[in-house]
């Protein structure tokens, strides 16, 4: 199996001609993934942006087999396909799901949990644009504190729940591999994709995917926001690999929050107090993350068999 990296990415495209918005981060993740995995791929997308922009009659944006699953059923359809091809003796096909944060963290969470529990060889990629973008920017369980959406118009820093930690939710199932990545770190993303496709069992990737119309950011900001969200500490790059937790990038000091938040209209209403609350929540999240990493390092690896 050839190693996946930026240098070995082939010229072939398996996701082009879609009608995604200009500068869409989610389509960038899809394009990279399918380029890297090649044509031996079965793709499942639930109802959402990616199905709305790819299957536009009389044209198809996917160059591989792809199907639309019901909103809540990405995980179920993935594990069904994986079980089928296993029964038919097909070994060289990747079964990949691309779901947004709504279809992963909220509506499809029980289906994802079931799929992770069934231990089929599937690759689940959540492109996280932090709200229900396809239906017009409604708040989801993965919307960060302080972000304006049409259903959380004030941002609600002090009242809203924290963003669901999808990597830890997936890791809690004891699956072989779960990791977070961004559009701003393609080498890191492709390395994690390479690892995810090789493990024996379900793998989960949680990828930061800017949405220019939903976030009110510039259309050329998808990669830049991916870098600044990591530098500000709001999106830790972590990796769960067979019970071991690695924090891939630990900034010695976090960049000012304004570097990231200031580039997006959805955070425009935030005041000093809100920013302090977001910074405090971030610091707490990092403490919990480091504690989790230490705890997993101290535990016997046999507690999480491959």
């Amino acid at each position: 199996m050839k190693k996946i990296s930026i240098k070995t990415l082939p010229d072939e495209e398996f996701f082009v001609g879609h009608k995604g918005c200009s500068g869409c981060g989610g389509t960038l993740i899809l394009r990279w993934t399918l380029k890297a995995l090649g044509d031996r791929c079965y793709v499942v997308v639930p109802a959402g942006c990616m199905s709305a922009i790819s299957f536009i009659y009389p044209q198809m944006a996917f160059g591989v087999n792809a199907m639309i699953a019901p909103f809540a059923a990405t995980g179920a359809v993935l594990s069904g396909i994986a079980a089928t091809i296993r029964a038919r003796g097909i070994r060289d096909v990747h079964v990949v799901g691309f779901a947004g944060d709504g279809a992963t963290a909220d509506i499809g969470l029980q289906s994802l949990s079931g799929a992770l529990d069934r231990r089929e060889r599937i690759l689940y990629i959540c492109y996280d644009n932090e709200a229900y973008m396809n239906t017009g920017v409604q708040r989801s369980g993965a919307t960060p504190r302080g972000a304006r959406t049409t259903t959380s118009p004030s941002g609600q820093v002090r009242f809203a729940a924290a963003k669901k930690d999808l990597v830890r939710i997936a890791a809690a199932h004891g699956i072989p591999y779960a990791a977070s990545a961004t559009t701003g770190h393609p080498a890191d993303f492709l390395r994690k994709l390479d690892r995810a496709r090789q493990v024996d069992g379900p793998a989960f990737l949680h990828v930061f995917a800017p949405c220019p119309p939903g976030w009110g950011c510039a259309t050329d900001a998808a990669a830049d926001l991916g870098r600044s969200v990591v530098e500000t500490g709001l999106w830790p790059l972590v990796e769960w690999d067979h019970g071991e937790v690695r924090i891939n990038r630990e900034p010695r000091s976090f960049a000012p929050l304004a570097d990231y938040l200031g580039a997006q209209a959805r955070f425009r209403a935030l005041g000093e107090e809100d920013l302090a609350a977001i910074a405090a929540a971030r610091d707490h999240h990092w403490q919990a993350l480091r504690a989790w990493a230490r705890e997993c390092a101290a535990a016997a690896p046999a507690a999480h068999p491959a």
Partner: peptide, 21 residues
């Protein structure tokens, strides 16, 4: 006369995206 399924594969555009620009 319209086909029942999408007829143009990835890599083909039936209408240009250039107008978005």
């Amino acid at each position: 006369a319209w086909p029942a399924t999408p007829q143009a594969d990835a890599g083909q555009l039936v209408a240009s995206n250039g107008g978005w620009r």
